[in-house]
């Protein structure tokens, strides 16, 4: 029994060590961050992750770049709705936007796309045409969803073999990117 416990503990320790080692191996070197107005707001959350702890906005010369941005495709129907509502309300209220929104996380190496993680959601959002929409056309619920994509990305990135291979290649040339 004791032997079994010891074996289990040893195996558990080995697995933990292996996992830690694997995670350390995939710590990315100093990489440059760029983002649009939505993506820039995710910087702190991404930078807290061990894999991206060396990320910086100032690493202008780094060959590696993480680019985070929001994209959208508006449905033709929503534009029609906007027109109808605008017509019905003398063009004052409200704009209805429905379409597929995406938050895209791209890692580029010397400007060449290495890997991309894209999270999409179809959202419908109405707002006054003449007021500033601080939710990037997604609404409050959409913004919550957009923020939640950071954790999804960090999970996917930690298991991304292309990022692991990038860290390994960087290690070959320049030594390990120690935390």
């Amino acid at each position: 029994m004791l032997r079994g416990t010891l074996v289990t503990c040893a195996l558990g320790w080995w697995l933990l060590a292996a996992a830690t080692e694997a995670q350390q191996d995939s710590v990315l070197p100093a990489l440059r961050f760029s983002g649009d107005s939505l993506g820039s707001g995710f910087y702190d959350q991404i930078q807290r992750a061990p894999q991206f702890q060396k990320m910086s906005r100032e690493a202008l010369g780094s060959p590696i770049e993480l680019r985070v941005y929001h994209s959208y495709r508006i449905n033709r129907g929503s534009a029609m709705t906007t027109g109808l509502l605008a017509a019905a309300t003398l063009g004052l209220l409200p704009a209805v936007a429905s379409g597929e929104h995406a938050v895209v996380y791209e890692v580029l190496v010397n400007g060449v796309l290495l890997t991309a993680h894209k999270y999409t959601k179809v959202l419908t959002h109405a707002h006054n045409l003449w007021t500033e929409d601080t939710t990037h056309g997604m609404g409050k619920e959409g913004m919550e969803w957009a923020k939640s994509t950071v954790d999804l990305f960090l999970k996917d990135a930690s298991a991304d073999p292309k990022l692991a291979a990038l860290a390994a290649e960087f290690d070959y040339y320049f030594g390990p990117a120690t935390p």
Partner: peptide, 19 residues
């Protein structure tokens, strides 16, 4: 005003010209 609304809808359409 009507025209303004339709003009705005036109602007929204430009991102999604479909074949």
């Amino acid at each position: 005003m009507y025209l303004l609304g339709w003009a705005l809808s036109g602007i929204l359409l430009t991102g999604s010209a479909h074949a």
